[in-house]
Nucleic acid binder design. Structure first.
Lengths: 203, 203
DNA sequence: ATGTACACGTGACCC
DNA sequence: TGGGTCACGTGTACA
C-alpha cells in the first residue's frame, strides 16, 4: 500500500477515511456489482427452474417428434398462457365434478363388517346421512324403504352399491329430530339383520 | 442529401454503397437498437401480463390486508411455484373425482316430465341401467324395490334424488336378457304411475 | 447499509 | 437478413 509510507499522524482522521473511502469505492463497487449480478443470476435460475417443472407438468408443451425426442422448449409466454388455460380448465372440471356428485365421492364400497352410522349434515338443517353396510339379500332395499316410510322421515337421496354379496347404502333423510334420530337408528338396525319376511309394515 | 450534389457517374456503385453504408451505420445501429429494445419490451409486457392473469386466477396470491386492500404482488418465482402446486393438486383432484364417481356424474336432477329409459351398459355384459323420473310419493322406493325383487333381476347399484316433489332414480340391474328387459320396462312403467297401495307383490 | 425484486437495454443465438 | 427469444449485467426502488 502506498499510503502506509506516510506517517500516520500526518494524515487527519477525516482525510484518512476519505482516502480509504476513495480507495475502496472502486473495488467495493466492483465487488458489489459482482454480488449483485450473481444474485440476479440466482434469481433467474430459480424462475427458469420453475418454468422447467411447469414444462414437464403440462402436457403438449414438450413436442415429441416421431423419431427424435426433441424437447423443443416452448416460449416462456406460451408456457404461461398454456398454464393459465390448464388451470382454469381444471378448476372448472373439478368444481363441476365436485358439485355434480355432491357428497357421492365418499360412497365407496360395502364394508366387510356390518356397519350402521348416522350423522347430521352440517350444510343443511334437519338432514341426516345414514350409512349402512350389511349382507345383501332380496328385498333389503324394499325393507329399508318401508321402514323409512313408516316414519315421518323423507328420503331425499339414496346411493346404494352391491358387490360380492354385500351392500352399502347411504340414505339422506330429511325431517328427523333428536328423538326421531334414535328411532331411525334402531329401525335401520332391525332392518339390517332381520330377514325380510319378518318385516311387515303398512304404509 | 449531400451526396446528390455530386454527378452520379462520378461515384462508383461500390463507393456509393460504401458511403451509404458508412453513413447509415451509426443511425442504422441506433434505429436497430431502438427496434430491438422495443421488441424486447413488448415481449416483457406480454409475459408480465400472463403473470398478472395468473395472479388473479390463483387464490391467495393477492394478499388482502384487514384495512387496506393492498394487492401486494407476489414474487414471480412464488407465482410459478404456487401455480405448479395448484396444477398438480387440481389434476390429482380431477382424476380422483373422475374415476371415483364412475357413471354417477351423469345423475342430474329429476325431469319435469315422467321419463323411463332403459339402456345396456356397454362396459359390462348383462348390466342394464334404468333411469326413471316421476312424481315423488311415499313408498315409491319401496314399490320399485319390490317390483324388481319380483323379477329375477338383481339391483347392483342405485342412485336416487328427490327434489321439489319429484324423484329421479337410476338403477343398475344385472341379469336381465332381451325378454326380461321388456318385462322390466313395463314393470317399472306400472310402478311409476300406480299409487303404492295398488302394488301388492310378495317376495 | 444490505438484500431482494423488477425493468431495461444489449449481445448472442436461431430460424 | 430480420424478427424472435434468451441470458446477462446494470440501474433503481423498496424494505
Amino acid at each position: 500500500m502506498v499510503r502506509s509510507n506516510f506517517p500516520p499522524s500526518f494524515l487527519s482522521q477525516t482525510y484518512k477515511s476519505s482516502i480509504s473511502k476513495q480507495r475502496s469505492k472502486a473495488e467495493n463497487k466492483l465487488l458489489a456489482a459482482k454480488k449483485h449480478s450473481e444474485a440476479e443470476r440466482r434469481r433467474r435460475m430459480r424462475i427458469n427452474g420453475q418454468y422447467d417443472t411447469l414444462r414437464t407438468i403440462l402436457p403438449n408443451l414438450i413436442k415429441v417428434s416421431i423419431i427424435i425426442i426433441d424437447k423443443k422448449k416452448k416460449d416462456k409466454a406460451s408456457i404461461l398462457v398454456e398454464t393459465i388455460k390448464q388451470v382454469t380448465e381444471l378448476k372448472k372440471k373439478a368444481s363441476k365434478l365436485e358439485d355434480s356428485n355432491g357428497t357421492s365421492k365418499e360412497v365407496k364400497f360395502p364394508s366387510g363388517a356390518d356397519r350402521l352410522n348416522l350423522e347430521k349434515c352440517n350444510d343443511e338443517e334437519g338432514l341426516v346421512k345414514a350409512t349402512l353396510s350389511c349382507e345383501d339379500r332380496p328385498g333389503l332395499m324394499s325393507s329399508i324403504a318401508r321402514a323409512l316410510g313408516s316414519m315421518k322421515a323423507k328420503v331425499v337421496k339414496v346411493e346404494m352399491v352391491t358387490v360380492g354379496g354385500r351392500t352399502k347404502s347411504v340414505l339422506w333423510v330429511q325431517g328427523v329430530e333428536n328423538e326421531g334420530l334414535r328411532m331411525l337408528k334402531s329401525t335401520l338396525k332391525v332392518v339390517m339383520h332381520k330377514p325380510s319376511f319378518k318385516m311387515r309394515f303398512t304404509q
